[in-house]
């Protein structure tokens, strides 16, 4: 379901009818999604909705019961080694060899990935702010430091697709901000980024596209910019809210109306602001404030998931 007609070669990740069952539990159901080059795709869903299971199937560590994953246009199952070399990933709760240093851990993963120099290892350690602690054993690292090390491991071989499962888990606010910036930069560099998160504002600030998963089913998938512009509205503060409601209800070009004290939320295109102001003034109702209402991802999320919180 591409949202803006991509060239086929732009599609880096595609899942087709991906389904995973654990006994009688349907963890992921018939999932179709696409991620393109330069896209930062936010994968949102409540806990247990199947986000990590989906990522496991994308990375080949879980076997789907039905459907398949395509990476770089190739069937991931048949060409797993080749496509994973072009992919970097941070799994949920990143794991390392605790008795080894951060640098030694990266060297192990570099040997598995192939073609990563020691200099590049130090570069990515520097990028995630761990160069100063690179010689310390991982068992002495905090959760946030492990998360940073996992990011370094994911990026060190300069992958074309970056898959991140809750990448800001355990980070302090400054670290979260840095990681968000890093994710945005990756998208700007033309890489495809697939990031699962339970933090709505994080996805809103970071991602170009969003997919919302609930009970293993993809409920919605569209560009964040379109989603935030959907159902445009104006927020008004008026001198007489009750009369204003009555007047506005009489206009056929006004959609849904919501009142909170003297404030009204009017579902109407922003270019109708002048008309609203004029009509109300004609009825002796004056505006104290009028501004466009910005939809949030949270509103959209609650709408499509039926009010379930992401956490």
């Amino acid at each position: 379901m591409p949202s803006h007609g991509p060239a086929p070669s732009d599609v880096v990740l595609r899942t087709v009818g991906l389904t995973k069952r654990y006994g009688r539990l349907l963890a992921v159901a018939d999932l179709d999604l696409e991620v393109r080059r330069g896209q930062v795709y936010g994968f949102l869903g409540p806990n247990g909705s199947g986000k990590t299971t989906t990522i496991g199937m994308i990375l080949g560590i879980l076997r789907p019961n039905r459907g398949h994953v395509e990476l770089f246009g190739l069937d991931a199952r048949q060409h797993l080694a080749a496509v994973l070399r072009r992919t970097g990933a941070v799994m949920e709760s990143p794991s390392f060899y605790p008795h080894l240093s951060g640098r030694a851990n990266l060297r192990i993963f570099a040997l598995l990935s192939g073609g990563v120099s020691r200099r590049r290892i130090d570069e990515v350690l520097d990028l995630v702010g761990l160069l100063g602690r690179a010689a310390s054993k991982v068992r002495t690292y905090s959760m946030g430091m492990r998360q940073r090390l996992a990011l370094a491991a994911a990026l060190m071989h300069d992958p074309e697709l970056v898959v991140l499962d809750e990448p800001t888990n355990g980070l302090d606010p400054a670290g979260m901000r840095e990681v968000r910036q890093l994710i945005r930069n990756l998208g700007q560099m033309g890489k495809a980024v697939f990031v699962s998160s339970h933090l709505l504002h994080e996805v809103e600030q970071t991602c170009t596209d969003v997919g919302i998963l609930k009970q293993g089913r993809l409920l919605a998938q569209q560009p964040v910019s379109e989603l935030l512009q959907r159902g445009q509205a104006l927020e008004l503060e008026v001198t007489d809210a009750e009369r204003a409601m009555a007047v506005l209800r009489g206009l056929d070009w006004v959609g849904e109306l919501t009142r909170n004290d003297n404030r009204l939320l009017v579902q109407v295109p922003p270019e109708r602001a002048v008309d609203i102001s004029r009509v109300l003034a004609e009825h002796g109702i004056y505006l104290a404030e009028l501004r466009p209402h910005h939809n949030t991802l949270e509103e959209f999320f609650l709408e499509v998931t039926g009010g379930e919180e992401p956490l």
Binding site: L59, S95, I108
Partner: peptide, 17 residues
């Protein structure tokens, strides 16, 4: 136990290798 099997397998190595 450490969960490092996952970390290794997502680096582009086949399971037999």
């Amino acid at each position: 136990g450490w969960g490092t099997v996952r970390s290794c397998l997502i680096r582009g190595q086949t399971r037999p290798r």
